[in-house]
């Protein structure tokens, strides 16, 4: 209880600003990347190169009507966007984006972020069941099948890194990479991790719970206006957190020559997010059984072997 009120308010504002700005920038970036990969320009009209397009869309969404379907399970339906958004604010707390830019240095920060990342699926499940729509329900069920397939490889990746760094603290893990980023020692693990966070953030080629061409919009099919934009915000914030985690676990976090720490942090983070976008606009969506095959028969054994080999090398 020794934290001053000013600090708390500052951090709350800062985290809210990061969540909001990040979503604005990422939506714009996504549309730009998509456009250029299709030989298009993407948004160009509102602001220079369409930079303010997302703001305009956000204002438009604010002005729209929030509809609750008659047949929907009202409390679950209303709770779902909140459930998927709230954990983000907590998960942002232990993320170090710079030498001193960290809300709370927590010695189990990594565990906290991973645990809260799991709540994302819960929000999707709530939305799927609350909407009382068969597509939404299918989307929710798929999200559950998906989490079982990717979570174990993801945890194995994180476990390997914890073993190498000897700490659960995100800050300590980043500091342990002063002399060499873990991506140099663990390139395979980095690839597995990137694949699992693509799965975790529900992005194409693994966007089974959303799957426009099969489930129309999947779990958020019935959501309009603010509910929809909250889901959007949550999706992009989870991307931010997953990419931040990747940059801390594998790329040394804020550490780098010449530039100040936060700049390096953001550079690495948005580099990884660009990678995710690149995947999305390159690869077609997998079938659900192909995803299960990938998760259980390829990622899991590879991660396990990698884990055991790393343990062996570390023990020597």
């Amino acid at each position: 209880m020794s934290i001053s009120p000013v600090t708390i308010v500052c951090y709350l504002l800062g985290i809210s600003a990061v969540v909001g700005l990040n979503a604005v920038i990422l939506v714009w970036l996504e549309r730009k990347v998509a456009g250029h990969m299709h030989f298009r320009y993407g948004p160009m009209e509102v602001g220079p190169h369409g930079l303010l397009q997302t703001l305009a869309d956000g204002i438009k969404l604010l002005g729209k009507q929030f509809l609750v379907p008659d047949a929907a399970d009202r409390p679950l339906f209303l709770l779902a966007p909140v459930v998927s958004l709230v954990p983000i604010f907590v998960a942002m707390v232990p993320l170090p984006l710079g030498e001193t830019l960290q809300a709370w240095e927590l010695n189990i920060g990594l565990l906290l972020v991973v645990a809260l990342g799991l709540l994302n699926t819960l929000g999707i499940l709530l939305a799927g069941w609350g909407s009382n729509n068969k597509y939404a329900l299918l989307g929710g069920s798929r999200a559950v099948a998906q989490i079982l397939a990717y979570k174990i490889p993801l945890l194995l990746c994180i476990l390997t890194i914890i073993m190498m760094a000897g700490s659960y603290s995100l800050r300590q893990i980043a500091l342990a990479q002063k002399d060499g980023w873990y991506i140099l020692y663990q390139p395979l693990l980095f690839i597995i991790y990137i694949v699992t966070i693509t799965l975790e953030t529900n992005r194409s080629p693994f966007d089974f719970s959303e799957a426009e061409s099969e489930l129309v919009a999947g779990f958020h099919i019935e959501y309009s206006a603010m509910g929809f934009s909250l889901f959007f915000l949550a999706e992009y914030s989870y991307m931010f957190i997953a990419a931040a985690l990747a940059s801390i676990l594998f790329l040394g976090g804020w550490q780098g020559p010449f530039l100040p720490g936060p700049v390096w942090s953001l550079l690495k983070l948005y580099g990884i997010i660009f990678l995710l976008m690149w995947f999305r606009w390159t690869f077609p969506r997998l079938r659900i059984d192909q995803m299960l095959h990938l998760g259980w028969k390829i990622l899991l054994p590879l991660a396990l072997v990698n884990f055991l080999v790393t343990a062996g090398v570390l023990a020597l």
């Binding site: 250029h36 030989f39 690149w278």
Partner: peptide, 9 residues
Amino acid sequence: TFANMVSRP
């Protein structure tokens, strides 16, 4: 796709 991205729209 990367080649697409860096080429002229």
